[in-house]
Each structure stands twice: as C-alpha cells, then as structure tokens.
C-alpha cells in the first residue's frame, strides 16, 4: 500500500475454525492485511468466511489465532451495516437509529439530534416516526446505514449491504454510500465492505482483498487506481473486472 495513507488497523495472522457435530471446519487461515484511510472490499465466494472476518474486526468474535490491532488513539468507534436490515420492529425508525447512541452513553437529546442528522444523510428525515414494517426493503437498508453513520464511526464495516436489494435500489444506495465516503461530512477513516459481487468491488473500493474458498486465505490484493466517479462502461473498470474474475475463479 502507498505510504501516504495512514495506518488505521492491522489484521495479523488471524485464523478461525468451528466445530459442529464433532467435525472441525477451518474458516479462516492466517489472514494478514493492513487498512489505511481507504475503502477496502473483501471479496470471496459465498460461505468462505468473509462475514466471520468482519465480525472478528468488529470485536464480536474472537480469532483462534492472531489479532486485530487498531491504530487509533483510544477505542475505535465501529459502525456496522448488516446484510439484512436487523431493525427492531417495536421501535420507530428514529428509535432504532438512536438506540446504539444511548447504549454508548450519549445524552438523549444529542442522540436524537445525531440520529436525525444521519437519517437526513440517507434521505429518510421525513420518515423518522415510521415503524420498520411500514418501509420498503430499500428504506429499511437505509435505516440500517443511518444507524451505522449515527455513531460517527472511525471504521465503517458493511456485510454485503446491497446483496438483498433490487438492482436499481442497490445502484442508488451504492452511489450514496460513495458520496458519504468521499464528502467527508463524517469522520469515517476506513470502510471495510464484504461482498461477492466483483463489479461492485471494482466500482467502489480502493483496494480489493480476494479470499479463496473455505478455509479462506488471501489469494491476491488488488489496488484499484481508477479515478472516481467510475462507471461500468469505463474500459479500465471492465478490464479490472475481468482480471479480478480470474483470481476469483
């Protein structure tokens, strides 16, 4: 990686396996990479352990071996966008976005204000007193993103955030996320996104980490040096997509 980017976190020798019904499944094997102030995509086939890696970085799962080291003064604030919206059905949109802030000890009024700001960023400021069941799939996913933004994260983790949306909604949300990322209205230092969509990885990220099928190992790290905004039709994009496909298959 280029030296101009500050080191934000480092994944060192992470391995993980599960036991199920007496059998041991190796999921991750000796994963090493560094993350700077950049947008990183972890790309790999379904079930290869990408999400496990993300959860280890988020600190909700422990690796068997290795560690994740943050290079941020103090505790890293993590925003997490789940694959499915994971909203609490008994709370309004605003309540859902506010909850993590209240859990983090933010005073109620500040929390509500920050939640409203986050909802405004994703274009849902009008819907804050709606319940999740009253929203479309795309809107729910926006709330999911707003909830992650509201904590003003140092690191934004996204677990296949666009994979369960229709292509049009996914396209819109992708460019919104990129706008938020590049506008620096929020102090996000790094984004780590998990996906199995090659084109999405090339269009969005600065660096693609390609994992092998289970047990996942890093096959290749690809730097994406294509100027933004990128479109599907750009020759560089098409060429890189083809190249990445070769590593994946």
């Amino acid at each position: 990686m280029s030296l101009s980017k500050d080191l934000v976190l480092e994944v060192r020798g992470v391995s993980k396996s599960y036991t199920s019904g007496g059998k041991v499944f190796e999921v991750l094997k000796d994963i090493n990479f560094v993350v700077g102030r950049e947008y990183i995509t972890i790309l790999g086939p379904s079930g290869c352990g990408k999400s496990t890696l993300l959860r280890i970085i988020a600190g909700v799962e422990k690796p068997d071996k290795g560690e994740v080291v943050f290079n941020i003064g103090g505790k890293a604030r993590i925003g997490f966008v789940f694959q499915f919206p994971t909203l609490l059905p008994w709370m309004t949109v605003l309540g859902n976005v506010t909850l993590p802030l209240i859990a983090a000890g933010v005073p109620k009024n500040d929390a509500v204000e920050r939640a409203r700001r986050a909802l405004k960023i994703v274009g849902l400021e009008e819907l804050d007193d709606f319940y999740p069941s009253e929203l479309s799939g795309g809107m729910k996913q926006r709330v999911n993103i707003a909830r992650a933004l509201a904590v003003e994260p140092d690191i934004l983790l996204m677990d296949e955030p666009f994979s369960n949306l229709d292509p049009l909604t996914a396209e819109n949300l992708r460019s919104e996320v990129l706008d938020i990322w590049s506008s620096s209205i929020l102090p996000i230092k790094s984004v780590i996104m998990v996906t199995h969509n090659v084109e999405e990885a090339v269009l969005m990220s600065d660096k693609i980490i390609i994992l092998s099928p289970r047990p996942a190992r890093i096959v290749k790290v690809v730097d994406v040096n294509i100027p933004r905004p990128r479109t599907r039709k750009m020759t560089e994009v098409q060429e890189l997509v083809d190249r990445v496909y070769e590593y994946v298959s």
Binding site: R55, A58, G59, V60, I78, F80, F82, F84, T86, L88, L99, P100, A103, A104, V151
Partner: peptide
C-alpha cells in the same frame, strides 16, 4: 433472533 443479539453486541446494548 441471532441477528438482533449480534446487533446488540456490536453496539454495546
């Protein structure tokens, strides 16, 4: 739901 438990853990609820 497992997903809700995970959400609670990630955001320290």
């Amino acid at each position: 739901k497992g997903s809700i438990l995970e959400f609670s853990r990630i955001y320290g609820i």
